[in-house]
């Protein structure tokens, strides 16, 4: 049961560091089990490389259960591979066929520079959050949690937006490398909750400004982000953010 019978050709992006030029390198793996996860297949390949004295492929991964958002492979032209609604670590080899050739590249965007091989720097997302993706409430300032009832529909919509894991698949797949889905998910989550109202218009302005400063592209509403998001974050969030942004800029008198 431990070994299977799949033989695969992999074309994997190798790049020594941010400055160096990378290239796709061909590898072969044999006896892959369909029950393996995609990353476990990479473990097998790396074990081969290490014992041969080669450098293993560096890739980001951590929880391996689809929630930390660290894994980030662009597989055969799609972020997180051929299946919808999952991350790379949840992709299993039964989604491929014996003899397949699989191309694996890092997320590509000006705002996500490659660090090494398949690992990219997504700290731009952190900076967008620190520009406004929060509610300013110091520890100890809170009132009783049930003092503000929230309509279930709003709470549910906020939760759906909050499900974002910050993996960056939206940026990776967008033909413009736009981060609108990521940013709008946080803007929406907080805009839908009563606790988020005081900073609502300031927040959206600051977060969009930071997003622009990071060098992400502009959204052209192709919807690829929504289709590829492992957590199914909806395009409605982008519309909501646009609405809030326009209100903030053209209606509200508050400067960001």
């Amino acid at each position: 049961m431990s070994t299977g019978n799949m033989n695969l050709t992999l074309k994997i992006w190798r790049q020594k560091n941010t400055k160096s030029k990378g290239e796709l390198v061909d590898y072969k793996v044999a006896n892959i089990s369909p029950d393996m996860s995609f990353l476990e297949m990479f473990d097998v390949l790396n074990e081969q490389l290490i014992t041969k004295g080669d450098q293993p492929i560096v890739f980001d991964h951590d929880c391996r259960e689809g929630i930390c958002g660290m894994c980030s492979m662009f597989i055969n032209g799609r972020p997180h591979g051929p299946k919808n609604g999952i991350t790379t670590c949840q992709l299993h080899m039964r989604s491929f066929k014996d003899g397949d050739t699989i191309t694996v590249e890092p997320w590509r965007a000006q705002a996500f520079p490659v660090i090494k091989d398949l690992t990219v720097d997504r700290s731009a997302f952190d900076r967008v959050i620190s520009a406004g993706g929060f509610i300013s409430v110091n520890t100890g300032n809170a009132q009783d949690a049930n003092n503000l009832p929230i309509p279930k529909a709003n709470a549910d919509a906020a939760f759906e937006a909050a499900a974002c894991i910050g993996c960056g698949a939206c940026v990776a797949t967008c033909k413009n490398a736009s981060a609108m889905l990521f940013v709008s998910a946080k803007v929406s989550q907080l805009a839908l909750l009563p606790q988020g109202q005081p900073e609502r218009y300031k927040r959206v302005q600051n977060m969009v400004a930071q997003m622009d400063a990071e060098g992400f592209g502009n959204c052209t509403n192709t919807g690829a982000c929504e289709a590829e998001c492992p957590k199914g974050i909806s395009l409605e969030n982008i519309a909501r953010m646009n609405r809030d942004y326009l209100s903030a800029k053209f209606v509200s008198q508050e400067e960001a």
Binding site: I135, V137, A145, A158, F159
Partner: peptide
Amino acid sequence: QCVAQGVPLAR
């Protein structure tokens, strides 16, 4: 504290 931060707990 968490609810005040905007954590969307089930309702």
